[in-house]
Design a protein around this nucleic acid. Sequence first.
DNA 1: CTGAAAGCGCTAACAA
DNA 2: TTGTTAGCGCTTTCAG
Lengths: 344, 344
Amino acid sequence: MKYKKRTPVTKITIQDVALAAGVSPATVSKVLNAVPYVSAETESRVRAAMDRLNYRPSSIARSLKIKSTSTLGLITNDLEGVFTMSMMRGVEEVATQQGFSVFLCNSYGEAERERAHLLVLMDKHIDGVILLNGFRVGERPAPALPVGNIPVVYLFQYTHELAVPSIIPDDFGGAVMGTQHLLDCGHRRIGVINGPANYEATHERLKGYRQTLEAAGIPFDPALIRAGKWYESSGYALAHELMSQPNPPDALFCMSDSLAVGAMSALRERRLRVPDDISIVGFDNRAFAAHQTPPLTTVLLPLVEMGRLAGELLLQAIQTGQQTGEIHRVPCQFIQRASTRLTA
Amino acid sequence: MKYKKRTPVTKITIQDVALAAGVSPATVSKVLNAVPYVSAETESRVRAAMDRLNYRPSSIARSLKIKSTSTLGLITNDLEGVFTMSMMRGVEEVATQQGFSVFLCNSYGEAERERAHLLVLMDKHIDGVILLNGFRVGERPAPALPVGNIPVVYLFQYTHELAVPSIIPDDFGGAVMGTQHLLDCGHRRIGVINGPANYEATHERLKGYRQTLEAAGIPFDPALIRAGKWYESSGYALAHELMSQPNPPDALFCMSDSLAVGAMSALRERRLRVPDDISIVGFDNRAFAAHQTPPLTTVLLPLVEMGRLAGELLLQAIQTGQQTGEIHRVPCQFIQRASTRLTA
DNA sequence: CTGAAAGCGCTAACAA
DNA sequence: TTGTTAGCGCTTTCAG
């Protein structure tokens, strides 16, 4: 009776519930937030009123009061990049699971747009932000706008200007896996078709290859190494080059699945059967890898897992209020399919 | 590793600005919202105070008052689908441009998750929602949760249960373009490699092909038509089938770029040069189409444009408060590259 | 255990 | 033109 009744046709508020349950709004708030010291009897009466009225608390009003929105921002520099999606999926997954929503923002790689997004995100009081790179792992500067004390994580990139977590794949480890598998298959002359030198990944992967080889007592032979673009056409051309040498490789480690597809097509032209005559391993585990003939053995880039980790680290930072400037290298995963096999 | 601890920071409010400018909060609000009848002198004083204090209004507080958040929800059933990204890009583009933010939600195609997302989106007071399909165009039921009076648009899908706008590509028109081009090149026996029958697109496209042929006075020959999966391997197999017939086609219209890539590889095996011996046209304009050898002539699926339209229609509905249950077919676009050419 | 009261930061009548 | 006054719907001391 002491609480003003409001028109029930509009939004149902905590007041309405209080009135219906014969308690005060404060009490309703308490059951809403699972605050202890509410009698079971009162609680059930309130709960009953809530779902009788079909009550849904307003996150806006709540946010205004508690200064937190259960919302995070995801700013990507490339919404078309081949790797972007999977990482986003991982982020969305853990965010949703923990009751957070994610704002999707595309900066197109432009600082000005990033600034603008950061501005509105901060106005909207997001609790944290992920800066996602869709192209290639690399270093980048601080956010285009000082984010004050809101937590940040770098995904598929890293920075030294801020003490925030970064998440990148373990390219080195992935190359070790691929190389070791080929070694285990009995191959001794393993050719490499790599990507452009301006990707850190190409160096990491080559290093992984080289180190694994040397650990197995096999000398590194520069004649077996080629590099070009990441595309199929490059794989095609370089495989031909590699195979037309006097002492050609008996296996090919292609540092992207596209490269591998191109190489397979060259191999086919040379009447070499995969995997009978030559084994081939790709990298990335793109969707099409499984649909090749034969299905491509490859090294999975742990994109979804990286996205998940990004989400987890961000949520953790939001909850604990602190974060460390650590670089997390997420391990790759070896995917055995039919383009490699044990040699006799 | 360095720890970054977050320090509490006192937010600057409209009060602070009012105080600093020697006016009332109401007046500051007025300049903020460009309400007329504020003297130029006062306005500039307020503005000065605002940026001296580095003031940023709280959208939360504002939203609570005005009951609108300049935010929309985007719920996709597939965050890995090949078409999803481009559509999202279009949506994000127009949203950002009009000062809206977009919440990214993945339903994984499950009604329960869609419901859950819708629930929190509505709690967060979004102004509208886009239901995006990442797989294939098709009909679907109403949203998994009654959305009351908030505007909805269906993207890459449509419904008859709700009078809301739907946006789909004009597959028929796209097929007409591809076929007409091949006709213009001088081809008369145009083979078709199609996708699975459980995609509406395959029927629309075949219809476009057939109608264009007949309009040109060329009888439809079922022997020239093949269908299978959308994958490369299918294109490869079906191209072989088609070409091993007594009277083989002199051109191939593949209803996806993947199919076209597979077909090209079969053609290469048969020692047929593209485009010298045979022309080939794809569909979709996936990223890899441009990187084939030769670069693939194809029909662009207008995904980004569709995303944009979805955003525009939604924003329009938000502004006008009304929407119509119309199905918008966005035209495809012909992309000429090097896999087709005029025959002598 | 429950409720009254005081806001969170902003907007919108209505006065002045 | 500008300021006063009420809230938007919720949380949170602090009394009772």
